[in-house]
């Protein structure tokens, strides 16, 4: 259908523009926003491939949770109009090399598999709103818990380790004993141990730590 094709080119152009915006923008805040736009365009591309669940997950997890954290942090500490310093040292020489290698690799992948599929109509899949349909949540869950069980569990274990690690690191940096709770953290300021919560200026809210653990 013509509408699908128009939408594809809009979403594809949006994805590329977003990806370019991430690297080209000097202001980190705009970079993060460009990444959000890129992720939304990717979600539209997933929809066009009738992978509705993946599109929704992309929006909920990446645009909704991960990028919120990015925006949060960048808005707090970055986002200034200070120009970024040009990179010096060995990194400056190795950077273009890695970029070139990556470009060649992606080009091989695209030419190797992508171009071959240009003349075909794509795989025959059962689409529709039913439970057995391709890309539906039911199919997705079944594949995750049968064929891809091991990678799925490994990925979730990795995330758990990362979450625990983030909590441990955050606690160590604040110099806290294990007895401190989040409530104490929010109430006590470093200068005073005044137990009256209403007299103490509110300390650093424990938000980034907790959100990071999610």
């Amino acid at each position: 259908m013509i509408f699908e094709q128009i939408l594809f080119f809009i979403a594809a152009a949006g994805a590329i523009a977003g990806a370019l915006g991430v690297t080209v923008s000097r202001n980190p805040f705009y970079s993060v926003l460009a990444l959000v736009a890129h992720l939304i365009a990717l979600a539209v591309l997933f929809l066009l491939l009738s992978a509705e669940f993946l599109a929704a997950a992309q929006l909920v997890v990446y645009a909704g949770a991960v990028m919120v954290l990015y925006v949060f942090v960048v808005a707090y500490i970055g986002g200034s109009d200070e120009p970024l310093q040009p990179v010096r040292g060995p990194v400056a020489r190795l950077g273009p090399l890695f970029a070139g290698v990556l470009f060649v690799e992606v080009a091989i992948a695209v030419i190797g598999s992508g171009l071959k599929a240009l003349g075909t109509r794509g795989p025959e899949v059962q689409t529709g709103a039913g439970r057995e349909a391709y890309g539906s949540p039911g199919q997705f869950g079944e594949l995750l818990l049968t064929d891809f069980l091991l990678p799925f569990e490994a990925a979730s274990f990795l995330l758990l380790v990362a979450a625990v690690g983030a909590v441990v690191l955050a606690r160590r940096r604040r110099g806290l004993e294990d007895t401190g709770t989040v409530d104490d953290l929010a109430r006590s300021s470093p200068e005073s141990d005044d137990p009256r919560p209403e007299m103490v200026p509110q300390g650093d809210p424990p938000v980034p730590t907790g959100a990071g653990a999610s």
Partner: peptide
């Protein structure tokens, strides 16, 4: 939609 309630969450995520 087949993703049902997830649709609401997807837009809820963007509403932020």
């Amino acid at each position: 939609v087949s993703i049902g309630i997830l649709y609401a969450f997807a837009f809820g995520a963007l509403a932020f």
